[in-house]
């Protein structure tokens, strides 16, 4: 998304959690992760699924620490 690119361009690292990887790829995100079991409306996890939500956030943040080539959308399965 354009705002992600703008934030990254100004010097702040970003990570996107996306459930629409094809659409996200068109915007060429600096870093992105796709939780493959999640759907539109609950990209981080179902309502009340605290552990799943936490693991999704932790996994996304780990992608900041362990970078891959910019533009790569990594998949993640919980």
């Amino acid at each position: 998304m354009h705002v992600q690119r703008a934030i990254e361009a100004i010097g702040i690292p970003t990570i996107l959690i996306t459930v629409e990887p094809e659409q996200s790829a068109q915007a060429r995100p600096p870093r992105a992760v796709h939780p493959v079991n999640h759907r539109l409306g609950w990209p981080v996890g179902h309502a009340g699924a605290v552990e799943v939500q936490r693991k999704t956030v932790e996994h996304a943040l780990a992608c900041l620490v362990h970078p891959v080539e910019p533009g790569t959308i990594r998949t993640y399965e919980d």
């Binding site: 998304m1 990570i15 996107l16 959690i17």
Partner: peptide, 12 residues
Amino acid sequence: EHSPTDAVLLTG
């Protein structure tokens, strides 16, 4: 940039 933020987590 002008707030104390080191990284941004984005969600759709």
